[in-house]
Simulated assay, not measured.
Amino acid sequence: MKNIFITSLFILGFTIISALPLQAQRYGTAAGLRLGSNNYSRTVGLTAQQRIFKHVTLEGIVQSDFSRNTTMHLLLEQHKPIISKRFNYYYGLGYSFGWEESQVKNPATMEIITTYGNVTNGIDLIGGVEMTLLNTTISLDYKPNFNMSGRQEFFRGQVGISARTVLVKSKTQNKRKRQRARAKRKKHRTPFFEGIKERFGRN
């Protein structure tokens, strides 16, 4: 039942991301630090975002509390402006993998048994807002996680604050993309006089 719910959630989320109108943000590549917090741990991590389409980014997160919980996340995110491209909100979904603590409650003895080093994997959702100023992107997000295996708790939510440095601006990325497209067209273009010669040669 749990796996059916997670699969349905993943399909629904991907459908929403694919169907809605899309916008761009002010950066192409950005990387920095992320601080996360939930009822189980406080984590410090690295985060990197790469724009893969005009409106969509991939975000990778590696975070740890340097004790009982270390996780890795890959998220597909859609961005839409609130006021301008510098201030926008985003949402998405992805996959998580890691090593986490797990708590099991025993009603008979009123005990909570905690185990460590459990290999876990699950599905993430994410929603947040971000602002880009002075070549830096600051974001606040909420990232719920739905466990598929390795942990007793099915649901864990996490609030995160990230600060990323813009490594490649969106206009720079767009310019490089146009240059590659022009170079590709030029490579496959037949010279004018050569084309005439081939045409008459066939006749």
Rank of each mutant, 00 (worst) to 15 (best):
R180M: 05
R182H: 10
K187G: 08
Q173V: 02
T165A: 06
K171Q: 14
R176M: 13
L167A: 00
S162F: 01
R176A: 11
S162E: 03
G160R: 10
T165I: 11
T172A: 09
H188Q: 12
A183V: 02
H188Y: 15
R180H: 10
R180N: 07
T172H: 12
K171D: 15
H188N: 15
K187C: 05
K187T: 09
E194P: 09
T165E: 06
R164Y: 03
T172W: 14
A163F: 05
G160Q: 08
R176L: 12
K175Q: 12
F193N: 14
K169I: 01
K169R: 08
K186G: 08
A163H: 01
F192L: 15
Q158W: 00
K187V: 08
Q179E: 11
A181E: 06
A181D: 13
R176D: 10
I161P: 00
P191H: 06
H188G: 10
K171W: 13
K186M: 08
K171S: 14
F192K: 15
K177A: 03
R182W: 09
R185E: 12
P191K: 14
K175F: 02
K175D: 06
K175W: 06
K169C: 06
R178W: 02
L167M: 04
Q173I: 04
Q158S: 05
A163C: 01
F193L: 15
T190G: 08
T165L: 13
V159G: 08
R185S: 07
P191R: 12
F193E: 15
F192T: 07
K169L: 10
Q173M: 08
G160F: 04
S170Q: 14
K187Q: 15
R180E: 07
T165N: 08
R182N: 06
S162M: 00
K184P: 02
Q158D: 05
A183M: 07
R185C: 07
A163E: 00
V166T: 01
F192G: 13
V159C: 08
G160A: 09
G160K: 05
I161N: 03
K169T: 07
S170Y: 08
F193V: 15
T172S: 11
V166C: 03
R182P: 03
R178D: 03
Q173K: 04
R176I: 05
K186A: 14
Q173W: 07
A163R: 02
G195Q: 13
E194G: 13
R182D: 09
V166P: 00
G160D: 07
G195T: 04
K169D: 05
T165C: 04
R185A: 11
A181M: 04
